[in-house]
Every structure is written in structure tokens, then in C-alpha cells.
């Protein structure tokens, strides 16, 4: 055991190796055992038995994009909150008021997005 940080990397690496290794091994077994039959129709993506028309990756509703942008904004807010939350007991009232101001500013943006209809899926 080298030092605390390296230890944690080793520990997580062990879990990753175990987890990925299990299914890599299983897929290896599958490729030894599986039947193989060639048929041109097998390569077509499933669309209820109909021959697919064109590529599936067409432009999609912009709503999903807006939700993703909102998520990035508010998740960043959450990331700022974590260190604050851990040390709140030592920082005291000033930190509490600071965070209230921070939340209030972000809530203005949230209400704006709400009024603009980002959150309504009709």
C-alpha cells in the first residue's frame, strides 16, 4: 500500500477489472458457442418488419436539448453546493446567507425557463 490516494485508485481499478472482466469472459464464451448463420436481412435494424426508410438519426425535438442545457446549469449549481454543505457547520451564518443569494439568483433563471415553456411538454 503506497499512500491513501493511490490505494483508492487501486481499489476502484480492481472493481472495474472484475466487473468488465466478467462480461468480457462471458461474451468470449458466447462467441465460441453461438450458432452463425448468414442472411442479408439480419443486418437491417428492426422497424416492425418494414424495410427502414433512410437513416434513423434525423433531427429531433429541440425540447430535449433545452432540458439538457438546464440540467448542466443546475447540476453545476449542485456541484457548488457540495463543498459548501460539508463545511457549513464551521462556516456559519455568512455562508448560509451567501448560498441563499446564490440560490435566489439561480431561481430567477429557473422561473424564466419555466415561463418560457421549457418545462411544459404538451
Amino acid at each position: 500500500m503506497v499512500n491513501a490516494t493511490v490505494d483508492i485508485f487501486i481499489q476502484f481499478f480492481l472493481m472495474i477489472v472484475l466487473a468488465a472482466g466478467m462480461f468480457v469472459a462471458m461474451l468470449w464464451i458466447v462467441h465460441r458457442l453461438m450458432p452463425t448463420s448468414r442472411n442479408p436481412n439480419k443486418g437491417i435494424p428492426y422497424e416492425c418488419g418494414v424495410r427502414p426508410t433512410g437513416d434513423a438519426r434525423v433531427p429531433y425535438n429541440v425540447h430535449y436539448y433545452l432540458v439538457a442545457v438546464l440540467f448542466v446549469l443546475f447540476d453545476l449549481e449542485a456541484v457548488f453546493m457540495y463543498p459548501w454543505a460539508v463545511t457549513l457547520r464551521t462556516l456559519g451564518t455568512v455562508a448560509f446567507v451567501d448560498m441563499l443569494v446564490f440560490i435566489a439568483i439561480l431561481l430567477v433563471g429557473f422561473v424564466y425557463a419555466w415561463k418560457k415553456g421549457v418545462l411544459s411538454w404538451e
Binding site: 435494424p45 422497424e47 429531433y60 430535449y64 432540458v67 440540467f71
Partner: peptide, 19 residues
């Protein structure tokens, strides 16, 4: 997957999970 069902499912799922 390049399949329409899969794409719709993934977009829905992505939006739902991040929300």
C-alpha cells in the same frame, strides 16, 4: 443502434435521467 425505436427511447431516457 441506428434504429428509430432505439433513438426515441434513448432521447426520452436521457432527458428523464438527467432531470
Amino acid at each position: 443502434s441506428n434504429s428509430r425505436w432505439a433513438l426515441i427511447g434513448a432521447l426520452r431516457s436521457g432527458a428523464q435521467m438527467i432531470s
